[in-house]
Write a protein that binds this DNA or RNA. Structure first.
Lengths: 228, 228
DNA sequence: GCGGGATGTAAACACCGTTAACATACCTTG
DNA sequence: CAAGGTATGTTAACGGTGTTTACATCCCGC
């Protein structure tokens, strides 16, 4: 057997194999199925082997979450590019975001789960999630420069937009949305809901805070505060 | 020892005692601390006793979640009543909602957690969460009748509003909001964020879908579709 | 009062996260 | 090129958990 290129150690990138196994387990049986031991079994190693690559169960979850954010970001970029107008681009982005969450419920939950929240361990996860956030902030800045979004802190406006879409996804996944009570999927009803939420959002972001100024007074900020 | 009034059985409403213990555990040590055995210990019974009242770990979580929705609903009602104007009422409601989530992070997560999602087990939980949703729908209908919210399916509009606030809470709890990276609390920055989100939402809900009709064409629906 | 069902207990099983002691493969350094 | 150190993987074990089974006890309706 000729060894593969760059087979770093005994197994050959066991770390990635464990992440892949974890994602597969997640899709098969949800979060309860994602155990360190099961991931080890699926990767064909002993149950203690993962501890050479992950400090912790939460550490593996963080790696899965970071991977999810990376994929989510590329999906969002692709969707935003496909739009012919800013309006279309934003709607497409929203739809792609919701589709991602609904298509991979367990991964989406892990990405926003309690096990990896805050604490500033998991720098890779922070980096990837910040990158998604930055994508939204950049988009808001672009819309501000086009006069389609009122002036104001783009981070705050982006956070509001993110909140709306993220909240919608989680409410659907929880079965709290009246449709999708059974199985979360990108049904026509959900598609309509995304459209409505996007319209409300775009309309609200265009107007100013209290009706005191016109939406034409757009003052784009040239320098942005850093995300972290 | 004189027995208390209505001491139904051996322990005296062990079910409620377990729910109370579960909430206490949740506040002390978060979700990992909430185990059936720990709840049993805290209630002073054997580790198998909870199974006489809860089919399952998820069943106990569902009871905790239902209790949370009940309390959330009363907080929301109180806040909405305190407002002097519809605008103030809505802002107060939003602030109360976010405060609840930020004040009781673990409970909030359980309320929207994966363990009790969908599946239509846990009818009590469904009832309580639907009741919160209905509160929002009724509020939207009221605003529509005042001409402050455009016409359209109030359930969909309410879901959008809920999504925005729910999403904001979870993003804060996850530490994904740029402020509250450290400890989720109702800081001034979060308060400002809630204000901005509320304004965007109100402005967006007031306008119509595509700028084709005036916001004055409000056609209140007299009969509402049922929540379930 | 008495029998049955509701409630609580004790013991056990399988699984999990995690650690410690040990074995092996790779790679650097002399 | 040899040697030793380190990264990697294994085996075995500990405590904790969810859950079930068989058993004990208590309350309530007849």
């Amino acid at each position: 057997m000729p060894p593969r290129q760059r087979q770093p150690y005994h197994h050959g990138d066991l770390r990635q194999a464990l992440v892949d196994a974890a994602i597969a387990l997640l899709r098969e049986g949800g979060l309860p199925a994602l155990t360190l031991r099961a991931a080890a079994r699926k990767a064909g190693v002993s149950q203690a082997a993962p501890y050479r690559h992950f400090a912790d169960h939460a550490d593996l979850l963080a790696a899965v979450a970071a991977d999810g954010f990376t994929r989510l970001r590329s999906v969002m970029i692709e969707a935003a590019r496909a739009g012919t107008s800013p309006r279309e681009g934003l709607r497409g982005l929203a739809r792609a975001y919701v589709r991602f969450g609904v298509k991979h419920p367990s991964e989406y939950r892990v990405m926003f789960g309690a096990e990896t929240a805050g604490h500033s361990r998991f720098p890779e996860l922070e980096k990837q999630s910040s990158s998604v956030y930055q994508l939204l902030v950049d988009g808001i800045v672009g819309l501000q420069q086009l006069g389609l979004v009122r002036s104001g802190d783009p981070m705050a406006i982006a956070l509001t937009a993110w909140s709306t879409m993220h909240g919608l996804v989680t409410l659907v996944l929880d079965g709290l949305a009246p449709f999708a009570r059974r199985k979360p999927a990108l049904t026509d009803e959900l598609e309509d809901q995304v459209t409505m939420a996007t319209e409300i959002l775009m309309f609200g972001m265009a107007g100013d805070s209290g009706g005191k100024k016109s939406a034409a007074t757009v003052r784009p900020k040239t320098r942005l505060p850093a995300t972290r």
